[in-house]
Design a protein around this nucleic acid. Structure first.
Lengths: 337, 337
DNA sequence: GAAGCTTCTGGAAACGTTTTCAGAAAATAC
DNA sequence: GTATTTTCTGAAAACGTTTCCAGAAGCTTC
């Protein structure tokens, strides 16, 4: 173990084994070394308690073996799950992950992108804000980028996203089939995700001859709660809400509670992200489940493929969501208006 | 920008500015440089699009500016919140964070501790399993460690933890005051946290002349659900459950639903971690709120203090929890047994 | 105006690895 | 038994920084 004060280096190991540092290095990287020397070196490694210095290794070999992951907020359960999947895949491939939270703030994104450059990461998995998405092409980063959750309009980058329009349409379909007609929508105003879901919602509504009614909010539960309370005080009260993320889902539930509206009879609701608690709230909340595990893994897979074939045209992987039907969208009871 | 193929190094900057690399380095680290040269260098940095290579910097300066964070699972909302706080504090101090998920698996912990050594981290924030906690003293890591959530029995390490016994006692107190008597406990079997909470529970129960009845489970919602269902089929049915984490809380709620037991009249429940959804489930769940933000920040603060004064005796920071009373522990109605 | 301080600057030596290169020894081919 | 290949090994040159050291100015101070 670390008998001497300083940490043992490859030199010390070489000395202890009576070989050159080159040989030690080769043993460590399974290079061509005779069995006899290999044994001696391995013993010496154990004896000295040697641990390679990754900074030195990275500097010399010019491989950082590091991938960057920039999300808006790790506390968003969607990103929590995705990042866990990414990290598992990365560590399995012998790489490390650097995680950064942008808080949907383009300046922080820029800061972190710079950091990623300085770390010489091998690749980036990124859920950018709209602002950064627009500038992304002009940024000439020297590593490949795989977008998650957010979609590049230009399609110049690899990406793995949910089929957002389709998912939103599924919710409209479902609510419509259950007898709801005045279906309002609440969408996030910072990401492309909200836009896409809105688009799907709008199309599905008009396709059924229903009037879309959408509002765009900052991604906070409170914003959604206030919006719902205000909206329900207006002349045309929605019968149901489709909301574009789990924060809004909380907001709607809170608003319903505040207004003493039972779910779903007073107000139906459906949203995104099948978090464990959605099953437990009220009669259960109908949601679109995103394949979070798959998203993380696929993002890593896409990244690795890109690293192997840098010039291949970009690919977008569009994953389908699953509609988990629960009590919050039970069939509408006939009601006098 | 990156006009030439390769990324610009400090040499290129020096060349472009007509100065030595030493001067460039000094400019970058705010060393003593005349204004004229400083300007020239800054222009050259901009012109070349220079980004320092952190690996090289770390190697030479022998400062990794990196702190390690090993938790059991980032998807546990407690750790999500703590890690976010840790990361914010770290980035604010110009340091990076390496996050690892041990999954309560001592072998993975060992693996990651080794990784931390290889990264030459400046310090570690660590929520270890009991097994690793026991071996921690003999491990002679060459960086300081601050424990979070889990407590070292020996007290040899810095730590910041909740006052677990007190918190559990608060729940007993509260339930007792609300008229509950047969109060059962469900505790995690992998961490010291479960033990401590059990201890507080046991003491508070006996102090009130009540019979403690605790069971220890693997940290999964399913385990808790099954345990509750089984327990409620026994002769001595508990009136209330105290559970030691939010997964168990879900399990209890699911079990109550499955058994058609209304909360709290059929079964009262109180637990730990004030997650947003606990307010929304049933009549709201009574929980102990942990100061997650504070825990993360304090852990970083303790780490920095330790780095400045390596020989100071160890410190344990014990933070109090807040009891958030909700409907799941409403006053017990008189009931025939 | 010489001697002593400051203040700035550049050359070169680190930091701990990997990798290139060439040489030595062993194995194979004639 | 010599010529050729193959296999292994070590010396030394990178990788991109920071930092030590010494020298060159520019100031004081007498």
């Amino acid at each position: 173990m670390s008998v001497s004060g300083k940490t043992a280096g490859i030199k010390d190991v070489a000395l202890a084994a009576g070989v050159s540092v080159a040989t030690v290095s080769r043993v460590l990287s399974n290079g061509p070394v005779s069995d006899a020397l290999r044994r001696r070196v391995e013993d010496a490694v154990r004896a000295t308690g040697y641990r390679p210095n990754l900074s030195a290794r990275r500097l010399r070999s010019q491989h950082s073996q590091t991938i960057g992951l920039v999300v808006s907020d790790i506390r968003n359960p969607f990103f929590t799950a995705v990042s866990r999947a990414v990290e598992d895949a990365a560590y399995r491939a012998g790489m490390r992950v650097i995680l950064c939270n942008s808080d949907e703030n383009p300046e922080r994104e820029e800061l972190y992108l710079r950091l990623m450059q300085e770390e010489r990461i091998t690749g980036l998995i990124f859920a950018p804000t709209r602002a950064t998405l627009d500038r992304l092409d002009g940024l000439d980063l020297d590593f490949p980028v795989v977008l998650i959750d957010r979609n590049a309009p230009t399609g110049r980058h690899d990406a793995v996203v949910l089929d957002n329009p389709r998912a939103a349409a599924m919710l409209v379909e479902h609510l419509h089939a259950q007898g709801y007609r005045r279906i309002a929508g609440l969408f996030g105003n910072t990401s492309t995700t909200g836009q896409e879901r809105h688009e799907g919602y709008r199309a599905a509504m008009t396709a059924r001859g229903l009037a879309p009614a959408a509002r765009f909010l900052a991604p906070h539960a409170d914003a959604a709660e206030e919006a719902v309370v205000a909206w329900m005080a207006e002349r045309e009260r929605p019968e149901a809400f489709i909301v574009s993320n789990s924060l809004f889902l909380m907001g709607v539930v809170k608003a319903a509670r505040r207004l003493h509206l039972p779910i779903p009879d007073g107000l139906a609701v459906a949203g995104f992200d099948n978090e464990p608690w959605t099953e437990l709230v009220g009669p259960g909340l109908t949601v679109i489940e995103q394949p979070v595990q798959d998203i993380g893994q696929s993002a890593m897979a896409l990244l690795f493929e890109r690293l192997e074939a840098p010039d291949r045209p970009s690919r977008r992987l569009i994953l389908g969501g699953t509609c988990i039907v629960r009590g919050s969208t039970a069939a509408r009871m006939a009601a006098a208006d």
